[in-house]
Amino acid sequence: MTSTMEWIRRHYGVPARHGMRITYDGKPATIVGAGNAGLRLRVDGERRIVPTHPCWRIVYPPVPEPARPRGWCAHCGTDRAMTKDGVMGKHHQHGRSWGTYSSTTWSKPCPGVGKPPTHRVINQTHPGEQKDISA
């Protein structure tokens, strides 16, 4: 199951993240949430939260490409690392190692391993794997 923000990133191809600083309608703003396939923003100097479409009047800051290529697994629908051959790397359906107990089921290796992704990740969703662009 994916979060709403992750779904927005995948569906609209935008780098939206909670707390991200953006420009909305020419004014600086912060993304404070997501829901119903839209974003919730707080424009600087205003008290109210603005619900908006992820592609409407928003300018996102540049986001670096991932250090390792990533893609969306066709089976479990999550953002995962790919191998050098362009196929999905080893991962588990619930993101846990084999043998650990999830609240309802045991985690098993995902059947999508070794298969091509539905599409590559354009906007990085895991900030710990971003390249350092400050240098």
Rank of each mutant, 00 (worst) to 15 (best):
V43W: 00
E129W: 05
P69I: 07
N36M: 15
P66G: 12
T105P: 00
H92Y: 07
P15A: 04
K131D: 10
R10I: 15
T23M: 15
P69G: 04
D132Y: 05
R17W: 09
P127L: 06
G86A: 10
S103V: 12
I8M: 01
Q130L: 08
H53Q: 07
R9T: 11
A67T: 14
S3L: 01
H119G: 04
H53A: 07
E6Y: 07
N123R: 09
A135V: 12
M1E: 07
K131I: 13
W7R: 14
W98K: 14
W106F: 13
G35Y: 09
Q130D: 08
T83D: 02
P111Y: 04
G114T: 01
S134N: 15
P61M: 04
G35M: 01
D132N: 10
V87Q: 00
K115P: 01
R9S: 09
S97G: 15
A74Y: 09
D79H: 03
K90L: 14
Y12D: 02
H92L: 07
T52Q: 07
P15Q: 05
K27P: 01
G45Y: 06
P64I: 01
R68P: 00
P109R: 12
I22E: 06
I31L: 13
S107P: 00
S107G: 13
A135C: 13
R10M: 09
G71W: 03
S107L: 02
E6D: 15
Y12C: 01
T30Y: 04
I133Q: 09
T105S: 05
K115N: 06
S103M: 07
R17N: 03
R42F: 06
P66F: 00
E65L: 12
S3H: 02
